[in-house]
Simulated scan of single mutants.
Amino acid sequence: MSDREGATATGPVLARALRILSTFDTDRRAMTLSEISRQAEIPVSTVHRLVAELAAWGALERGGDGRYRVGLRLWQVGALAPRGQGLREIALPFLEDLSQITRENVQLAVREGTELVFIERIAGSEAVPVLTRVGGRFALTATGVGLVLLAHAPTEVQDEVLSGPIDRYTECTVTDPHSLRRMLADVRTTGFSISDRQVTMDALSVAAPIHSGRGHVIAAVSLVVHHGTVSPHSLAPLVQTSARAISRTLSGAA
């Protein structure tokens, strides 16, 4: 297949390069050219050329085992995202304070489309294990931060999320769209969310919104604790205080 034919069959060069990068995830951190080709559904000859260019720029790195991994240059560029590293740097002192006070897991997330992205997580010394990781994506319907972000998302985003398949993680996961709409209304009224055993059966999270200088909800912070150890309503003021402090700092930095 010629390069021109390959471009026609698999899309523009940039789109193919992005498809290659998107094949890497937590389950596929290192891959051979043939594995990348199979995951991206792009011919090996084309993958060979594009991977070489990506590696030359620093988006990918080739290890001694011949497998490719995400390169440091890509992380450096991603760190410039204002909703990522910039927000994280402003929020981190408050997240650390919340973690030190409670010794529990603290998380910071933003919404991207119909998913959330975790941009920071601080693990408490004796905290409940969680499934999240920095840079990881998750459904908006189950976690504390997800419920906050969905509650303040545009109506069309809410409709899209609630009209599609809703992932179930445990027997306590709320998957009924009408029940979720009532929960989202409560989040907007109370100013915080509670996710009780919706992701794992041993965890409960309480989350609150972070506002931009213009008042828009741009992120959410949560505290994740062992289920049954404390009342979620007793945690809400702590989380809301941290969220308000981050919001004020963001407003001052704008």
Rank of each mutant, 00 (worst) to 15 (best):
D3Q: 11
D3P: 05
R4Y: 02
G6P: 04
A7L: 14
A9M: 14
T10C: 14
P12Y: 09
L14W: 08
A15L: 14
A17M: 15
S22K: 13
T23I: 03
F24D: 01
R29N: 02
M31K: 01
L33H: 05
S37G: 01
R38A: 15
H48F: 10
V51T: 13
E53F: 09
A55M: 08
A56V: 04
A56Q: 13
G58F: 04
A59T: 00
R62K: 14
G63S: 01
G66Y: 06
R73C: 00
L74M: 05
Q76I: 03
L80P: 03
L92K: 10
L92S: 11
P93N: 10
L95F: 02
E96H: 10
Q100N: 11
Q100I: 02
T102N: 02
E104Q: 14
N105D: 05
Q107H: 15
Q107T: 14
Q107N: 12
V110P: 03
G113Q: 06
G113C: 05
F118S: 06
I119N: 10
I119R: 09
P129W: 00
R133V: 06
V134C: 09
A139E: 06
L140D: 02
G144T: 03
L150N: 01
H152P: 06
A153V: 03
E156V: 04
V157L: 01
E160Y: 01
V161R: 10
T170L: 10
E171C: 10
C172R: 15
T175S: 11
D176G: 07
D176N: 12
H178Y: 02
R182G: 07
R182A: 11
T189Y: 08
M201N: 12
S205E: 04
I210N: 07
I210T: 09
I210D: 03
S212N: 12
H216G: 11
S222A: 13
L223Q: 06
S234I: 10
P237C: 12
V239H: 07
Q240N: 11
S247K: 04
T249R: 14
